[in-house]
Simulated assay, not measured.
Amino acid sequence: MTSAIIAGIIVAALGVCGAVAAARRNAADGKSAFRGRPPEALGVPSDHPARTVAERLEASLGGDFESRVKERVVRSRPGLKDGEWDWIWFELKRFFLMSGIARSVPMYSGRIDEAWHEMLMFTREYEQFCQNFCGAMIHHAPHTAGTEPDRSERAWFDWIYGELFPPSPASARLWGPFFRTALRPELIGRLEAADRTEWLAERFRGDTAARHEDIAAVIDYLIGRFKEQAAAARRNAERRSEPASGDAWTVGAMSGFLVYASLVDYDGFQERMNERLHDRRNDGTGGCGSWSGPVVGEGGKAHGGDKGAGGNGDHGGGDGGSSCGSSCGSGCSS
């Protein structure tokens, strides 16, 4: 046997060992992402205007309703662990909160969408939940194979999510990588100049805001935040400086940088976001609260997240690099 053949065998064996080790690490990361109990009130800070909205949503879902939905999900996924279910249910509730505020919220997670489908089987209870929470139905739009949401819609999803909730290791595991898609600069400019009526017509729910003062307050807060972040991004661009990274991983920290990077360096957006995410993982502020494991890997593709209903690697994630970019969407309507 020649030395070249022996060397080839050794290289191949090392490759197999590396692949096995990587698979084991991914499996371990997946398990650790679902450790611990989800925080109360969906993790919304006590001084955030969305806190009362989150508390009402939690109160609108009885424990018996959850247990019946879980029973149906477990029937189709007998290996589902309690810890994983807790986080799936938790992130579904976060999705509902977003859907009670925003006009259209695409669904980027196959596992969360599966729980939503089973929840819809309890028609009367689901309708009562929607009425108690936001005063209108949160409709489910079925996924159409081969379709995916507009790229900017994932960026918009990430921005709202980041403005409402602190991250958890389970977040990116279920939703796919966050902050991998830029907002279009023309969209930022249009929204920056828009008044409240135009925002409601394009992005937020006027009907639920009319029924609940706290939802109206959250909408006003988000409009103000976006305008402030866009104005700050332009000031920083003029000064040729980046926004400070801050001392802690807090709600709104990365969403603000999303607006900045989208506006000042649209073509280099991914590189800028990767640098900021890397800095936060290594400056002692990210810790377990960082945007979990998914990072941009080989070829610029985003890895990690949830296997779901189609799409591409830039939008959602999939364990091992597959993706979820479902066209499932929602909106509250009368």
Score class of each variant (00 low, 15 high):
A12H: 05
V20I: 15
R25W: 06
A28D: 11
G36P: 03
L57E: 02
E58M: 11
D64K: 14
V69R: 02
D82Y: 05
W85A: 07
K93Y: 00
I101W: 04
R103K: 09
V105W: 04
A115E: 05
M121N: 13
E125H: 08
Y126A: 14
N132A: 14
N132R: 15
I138H: 03
H140A: 01
F157I: 05
D158N: 09
Y161V: 01
E163D: 08
E163Q: 09
F178V: 00
T181V: 11
L191T: 07
L200S: 07
A201D: 13
A209F: 02
H212E: 02
A217T: 09
G224Y: 04
E228N: 00
A233W: 02
R234I: 08
R234Q: 12
N236T: 07
D247E: 15
T250E: 13
G252K: 12
M254I: 14
F257E: 12
S262E: 02
D267E: 15
G268V: 13
F269H: 13
Q270G: 15
E271A: 15
E275V: 15
R280K: 15
C288W: 12
S290N: 12
S292I: 04
G297S: 08
G300H: 04
K301G: 11
G304W: 01
G305Y: 04
G318K: 03
G321N: 02
S322V: 01
S327C: 01
S327E: 00
G329E: 00
C332W: 00
